[in-house]
């Protein structure tokens, strides 16, 4: 059992032009007393002015680098602030705070170093995923399995909980969305213990519009393959 207060739990929230939803996404998290690190990934929609005024750690990339880069910046920063647990959390409001509690439990209890959210454990969560997205995710699960040797029930799920020592061992070089596969790869290579827990993703009009398209998935795959060939 880890000795851990809520302020020792750091939410890392990469944000790229999410100005309109940040407040509603983060208010409940802040109210709970968690520490929040928002990494503005070079937004141009005025997000930064909103982030700066909120009671949290506000970081800003001078240029847009990608979600993977923003996550890594946030993790590096959180570790320097003494984070004991790290939660990766999307800015668009697609994650539920009560799911975070479910993921936190095994990590705080010391049962696993990493807890990963999965949409495919509970039937209801699975049904909440739009059909096309479900097909796409199934393919991503297979690709991830082949590439990393770690067969999970979900892929590219943005909700994760990492213990401090897990976060210290992980370093994302993949700036784009391909970081989602890279992180799994590193979990396996570093032999970090992990669990998957059910989470529900809230597919709002907003997050659907902003989310990744099918073509993006193809792009991610090419990125990863190139990465394999040219270290």
């Amino acid at each position: 059992m880890m000795d851990c207060e809520k302020k020792d739990i750091f939410f890392i929230v990469p944000a790229y032009n999410e100005g309109t939803v940040l407040d509603s996404t983060l208010r409940p998290v802040l109210k709970e007393g968690y520490s929040v690190v928002v990494v503005d990934d070079g937004s141009w929609d005025g997000s930064w002015d909103i982030i700066k005024k909120m009671p949290l750690y506000a970081l800003r990339h001078p240029i847009n680098l990608g979600q993977g880069a923003a996550l890594q910046t946030g993790m590096t920063f959180a570790l320097s602030k003494g984070a004991k647990v790290i939660v990766t959390f999307d800015a668009d409001g697609q994650h539920r705070l009560k799911d975070v509690a479910v993921l936190l439990e095994p990590v705080i209890k010391g049962e696993a170093k990493v807890a990963l959210g999965s949409r495919f454990i509970n039937r209801d969560d699975k049904n909440a995923v739009p059909f096309l997205k479900r097909v796409l995710l199934k393919m991503a699960i297979i690709v991830n399995g082949i590439m990393t040797g770690l067969w999970l029930t979900d892929a590219h799920n943005g909700l994760r909980v990492l213990s401090r020592d897990a976060a210290e061992k992980i370093f994302l070089h993949e700036n784009s969305y391909a970081h989602a596969t890279e992180i799994i790869n590193q979990i396996r290579r570093q032999k970090l213990s992990y669990v998957e827990k059910p989470v529900r993703i809230h597919y709002s009009q907003y997050s659907r519009a902003k989310g990744q398209s099918v073509w993006n998935a193809v792009n991610i795959l090419i990125d990863l393959l190139l990465r394999r060939v040219f270290k």
């Binding site: 990494v39 700066k52 909120m54 009671p55 949290l56 506000a58 970081l59 800003r60 880069a69 910046t73």
Partner: peptide, 12 residues
């Protein structure tokens, strides 16, 4: 960019 972001981090 990361170094810049971290050095200029704002805390509230």
């Amino acid at each position: 960019a990361r170094a810049i972001a971290i050095t200029k981090a704002e805390e509230k």
